[in-house]
């Protein structure tokens, strides 16, 4: 019984962390069709921002929830103005440019912090479920992801801003004809996506040993999750993260963590073979 509870929490955590690492990319790639290969580096920078802030004596939650997304959002804004905005609609070119950016960021961070592992401790201590000890921080991540999804949904569905953003992503010419400036909306959306990536990196920072090349570990998983999710941003994200997280954990507990990772990738290949448009290309059509 206790074990079942532990497995349930671990599975929820696996799903939540997949959603978390993919959220920024879902906005940038899912909405804007910009293949951002520097997504992992945005996360890495979010992590470093948190560590620097915490070591400077700032409260860890403020560092994670406010400072890191803000800083990375600003970096995203600069990147959008300097590089990305010239490349909208040019898929291969953005890929090359963002790949270059990722190398650039890894280089810069290495120059500043050195190529060594840094980290901070988790702010929440572990607690007991029956015979088992569980990482309390996992709950923080699960709750945070749920809140983020609700906010994102409310923002996109309920506000005028969200409506304009979605409209622009679908037909920027019509949005322009109606008097909205697509360039400005693209800029803000990219910035929001970057901030989400920074937040994800910040939230995960206390759980990992951070090195400047850490971003590489997330990029594959986040792309798989977003691509398999399909055209609907939020529904797609939830459905693909839930499938992959579940499969990963079943095999991890049943066999070993290595097999768990393999199972996730195999599942992604099969899923994309059966549903080339992603999960929401077939189910939940028209949902957000």
């Amino acid at each position: 019984m206790d074990l079942a509870a532990v497995i349930f929490v671990e599975t929820a955590y696996a799903i939540a962390s997949l959603i978390l690492v993919s959220m920024g990319l879902a906005v940038v790639f899912g909405m804007m069709r910009v293949i951002n290969l520097a997504h992992g580096e945005f996360m890495m920078m979010g992590g470093y921002t948190t560590i620097v802030a915490v070591k400077a004596g700032i409260n860890i939650y403020i560092a994670i929830l406010i400072i890191a997304p803000f800083v990375v959002g600003i970096i995203g804004l600069v990147v959008e103005r300097l590089v990305i905005r010239h490349l909208y609609g040019r898929l291969v070119d953005t890929m090359l440019a963002t790949w270059g950016l990722s190398l650039f960021f890894v280089g810069i961070v290495t120059m500043i912090f050195g190529n060594t592992t840094t980290g901070i401790s988790t702010p929440i201590s572990g607690f007991q479920i029956g015979d088992y000890q569980i990482n309390g921080y996992n709950f923080f991540i699960i709750v945070l992801v749920i809140l983020l999804l609700i906010v994102m949904y409310a923002l996109l569905k309920g506000t005028r801003l969200g409506l304009i953003a979605r409209g622009t992503m679908q037909r920027s010419d019509i949005a322009a004809a109606l008097g909205y400036d697509p360039e400005r909306i693209y800029m803000l959306t990219f910035m929001a996506g970057s901030a989400l990536s920074g937040l994800a990196g910040a939230v995960l920072a206390p759980l990992v040993g951070l090195v400047p090349t850490s971003g590489g570990a997330y990029i594959a998983k986040s792309f798989i999750t977003v691509v398999a999710g399909g055209p609907s941003i939020i529904t797609g994200l939830i459905s693909s993260a839930a499938s992959f997280g579940f499969i990963n954990q079943v095999f991890t507990f049943g066999i070993s963590p290595v097999v768990g990772e393999v199972a996730l990738l195999v599942a992604a290949v099969i899923l994309l073979r059966l549903m080339p448009q992603g999960i929401t290309g077939r189910f939940f059509k028209g949902k957000l």
């Binding site: 074990l3 532990v6 497995i7 671990e10 955590y13 696996a14 962390s17 015979d131 088992y132 000890q133 569980i134 990482n135 996992n138 759980l207 990992v208 040993g209 570990a217 954990q249 991890t252 507990f253 070993s256 963590p257 290595v258 768990g260 990772e261």
Partner: peptide, 19 residues
């Protein structure tokens, strides 16, 4: 348990160890 060098999430392993 063997882990590839890039594995960074040990949550399930920690639960397994407790079992």
């Amino acid at each position: 348990d063997f882990f590839p060098l890039d594995v960074a999430d040990f949550g399930s392993t920690i639960a397994k160890i407790q079992t």
